[in-house]
Structures are given as structure tokens and as C-alpha cells.
Nucleic acid binder design. Structure first.
Ligand SMILES: [Mn+2]
Ligand SMILES: [Mn+2]
Ligand SMILES: [Mn+2]
Ligand SMILES: [Mn+2]
Lengths: 228, 228
DNA sequence: CTCAAGAGTTAGCATCGGCTAACATTTGAG
DNA sequence: CTCAAATGTTAGCCGATGCTAACTCTTGAG
């Protein structure tokens, strides 16, 4: 029913460029066909075809069996989608009383439907927030984004005092657990030890809880060192 | 990217059932293939095919060249979409400072993306409003809607004093004009005369303006008589 | 170094929602 | 009552997004 102009992207295309961009956001590796298929719950065949179309449209660079990357155009589109997603998440929390664990899925679909006018009004009403409820920075209207320079993931942090800057919103159950433990953006956290053999990281949370985390949970949390 | 369950409708299907329902809302005739094609800016062929699919899905009843109507299932879906649309419009006006002439298009796309949870939260935040910014009643969660019993369109109103209950939001320029003239839901209005030969209706608005209206403009406004 | 598992691609198919062109039916002006 | 215009349908096409099955390429364990 809507009339996508020649240059307008489908929601599928928008989700793909966003996913490709997001894979690298906090120092990650480029994504892969298989990873995208898992992310979207589709088959490798479908992803391969879709990537081919996005390449033809000038949003993505990809040669068979090689790395998937964004063109400058694709990157700008991705950043604008990230902006929409994060502003919508923030809006849902502050205006409609959503919990930080409930906003991701809702924003995932609203981001394709809200007009640019609506996104900008939300930005105004919220007073131009710097980051979303998970601590992720919000790109400006023209696609500029700034990450804390010294951020490290909990998985690779040396023992010491840190401030949590960001927690991945991809798993909502995990967010509930983190919340219970006092693991929130801007909260202080003390890294006790990394046990490489067990693959666990032991931390003291803002609640004073001693917690051992492993795997994705440690990769979901980004820290900056507390100056002492 | 979303996973529409077996029974989930596409946005196209949602817009169709809503349009079929809306045609009859204020005493109108059943819609037609041609009218739907105009409404959506598509061709008759496309509408004919789509109606065939909706019939196969059990949302619509239609035999070739006959009347287009909704099944009970289709009608419930339509009412739930109308609810979403009108609650979203109301929300955009009260929370994001949209004008009543700006909300329709935005709601037209958000209605397909917002979750039921979000619609219900909006309903709560707004305090369960009875009608939208255009005076259209808002169906309940289970699809019940109530229209003023004695409503007549301005096109067929006898001279006398009335209260405007509803103004069609389908033409946003017209809404701006009505606003300027003092023609708003809940405003008093005095119908002076109907000139059948000229096809015009002359009214005195809440601003005291003497205004002559014709055609769609007179069909867009619904009135209830003021008890004297 | 080899070769099988894993990753990626291709072929062939389906559905949805678009289109144009041609055809069929209905209806109302005369 | 007639017939042309208006209305609706069908046929045949397309692109986007999905699928399965079968194939190819890459890579790492041994
Ligand atoms: Mn999305
Ligand atoms: Mn987030
Ligand atoms: Mn719509
Ligand atoms: Mn409305």
C-alpha cells in the first residue's frame, strides 16, 4: 500500500544492512552468510540470494565466498536505521513504560514504519539523547556515531574497576537477569578474575553480588576503565 | 524478517479489510473493485486478484461481479485495525505534537507494525479515549464500536443547529481548511440552507463564518442535532 | 597433504502483490 | 430496448522474498 520510491529499501534490505553494520560495531568480525541466516531465521540459500540483490543495488560489496561489507551508501542506510531503532527503544521506555528487555522486538518492526518526521519528533521530545536504554550510542540525523574510545568487552577485561557502558539487547531473558544482578549501563562493576580454562569471568556488581559469567554473556557487556 | 503466523495478515490484507469496513461506517454503500483501486492507487486487475485471495482466506465474501462484503472474521480483523489506527492517531497528536491533518498517513503505516501490547499501552496512557482526533469512535479491544445514533451527514442535514461529531480524515488539505474555518469535532454548527441545484450547503461555523460547502466536503462532516 | 565437514551457491519452485492487455459482464443514456 | 461505456475478470508477465535439494568451494583435523 505504501509507495516505496526508487531508492527506498524494503524492510528486509533495511534489516540486512543494519545486521551487517552491527556485526562490526563493538570490534566484531564481519558477518557471514551462515550468521545472517541464523540471525533472521532463514536459510543460507535465501541469505545468499538476498546479499546478491543488495550487491546489485549498490548497498553491499560481496564476491562469492568472500567477505560481506557495506558500501558507503549501505553504511549510511545502516546508520540511519540504527538511529531509528535506538530512538524508538528510548521512546518506548520513557513514554510508554516499556522495560529495557521489552523494547528491542517492538523497535525492530517500528523502525521500518515510522517516518523520518516521527523519528525527529521523538528525538526532540526526548531531548536528543546520546544513547539508548542499553547504552548504545545514537547516530545523528546524518549518520555520525561516537563510541567510547577505551571500551573493552567483559570477556577480555583485565581485573579492576570499570563502568558498564553498554549491554547487548539481543537476548531479552539475559537482560532481565542482568537487571536482577545490578548489571546495567552506567553501573560500576569490578572485574575479579578471568579463568581461561573454565571460560568464566568473575565480577562484583553494583548490588555487591559476586557473579560468574561466561560466553555470550561476557561478550554482551562493554566496559570502560574507571579512572582512579 | 517477522514471522507471520498462519493467521497473520499482510499489511495489504489489513488495509483491504479496513477499507471494505470503512466504506460502510457512516451509512455508506459497499465498496467496489474500482473504488478500492482508486483508494490504493493500484489497478482494477490487482484489486480483483487480491479480493480473490482474501475470499480464499475467509476474510471476504465475493462472487464475480457481485457485492464485496466481510465475513465475521474479516469484520473483526477490520475493527481491530480501525482501533489501532485511531489510537495511534490520537497518540501522535497528544504525545508527539502532530496536527490532526498530519496523523493519518503516519498511522496508516504504524498500524501494521505496532504490537498489540503497544496499542494497549497507548490506550492506557491516553486514558481509554472514546474517539480519535477526527471524532471517529475507537473500537474496544474486542472489536465493539458505537456510533452516535442520530448522526447525519452535512450533505443531507436539514437547516438548524447541530454539533459536529466527526470529520473524515482522508484529505489532509481539507482538514487544514476546516480547521481555519472553525469546523472541528464537537464544535457547534448552524446549517442555513441546502441548495439542491447548486449542490451547496451553507453553514455558520463556530468562528461565526458563513461558509458554502459542496461535494465531498459536505459528505466528510457528520452532525448530531443540538437539543433545544 | 588430504579429504570430509562446513560454508556458500545455484537451480527450481512457490506466494504475494504489482503491472498491461485483452476479454467479459453489467448498466444506464438515449 | 440497445449498445457503448463503465466495471470487473483473466492471462501472462515481473520482482522480492522465501523454500528444498543438489551442487561447489574452503578449510582444518588428522
Ligand atoms: Mn527490523
Ligand atoms: Mn538497544
Ligand atoms: Mn495501513
Ligand atoms: Mn482518524
Amino acid at each position: 500500500m505504501s509507495k516505496p520510491a526508487k531508492s527506498d529499501l524494503s524492510s528486509t534490505a533495511e534489516d540486512y544492512v543494519k545486521a551487517i553494520w552491527s556485526a562490526r560495531e563493538w570490534g566484531g568480525e564481519p558477518t557471514s552468510i551462515t550468521a545472517l541466516a541464523e540471525r533472521f531465521g532463514t536459510t543460507r540459500a535465501t541469505v545468499s540470494e538476498t546479499i546478491k540483490r543488495l550487491t546489485a543495488r549498490g548497498l553491499v560489496t560481496h564476491e562469492p565466498y568472500k567477505e560481506i561489507a557495506l558500501t558507503p551508501t549501505g553504511e549510511l542506510e545502516a546508520l540511519l536505521m540504527v538511529r531509528r531503532h535506538r530512538l524508538l527503544e528510548t521512546f518506548l521506555v520513557t513514554t510508554l513504560g516499556y522495560g529495557w528487555d521489552e523494547v528491542h522486538d517492538e523497535a525492530e518492526s517500528l523502525e521500518h514504519a515510522a517516518s523520518t518526521r516521527m523519528i525527529d519528533r521523538i528525538d526532540d521530545v526526548l531531548g536528543h539523547p546520546d544513547h539508548d536504554p542499553h547504552g548504545d550510542p545514537i547516530p545523528s540525523r546524518d549518520g555520525v556515531i561516537r563510541h567510547p574510545a577505551s571500551a573493552v568487552s567483559l570477556a577480555e577485561a583485565a581485573p579492576g574497576d570499570y563502568c558498564i557502558v553498554r549491554i547487548s539487547d539481543s537476548d531479552s531473558d539475559r537482560l532481565v537477569y542482568f537487571d536482577e544482578q545490578g548489571l546495567l549501563p552506567r553501573s560500576p562493576i569490578n572485574v575479579q578474575s578471568q579463568d581461561d580454562r573454565a571460560g568464566t569471568t568473575t565480577v562484583v556488581t553494583a548490588h555487591g553480588n559476586l557473579v560468574a559469567l561466561a560466553g555470550d554473556a561476557t561478550r554482551a557487556i562493554m566496559l570502560v576503565p574507571t579512572p582512579h
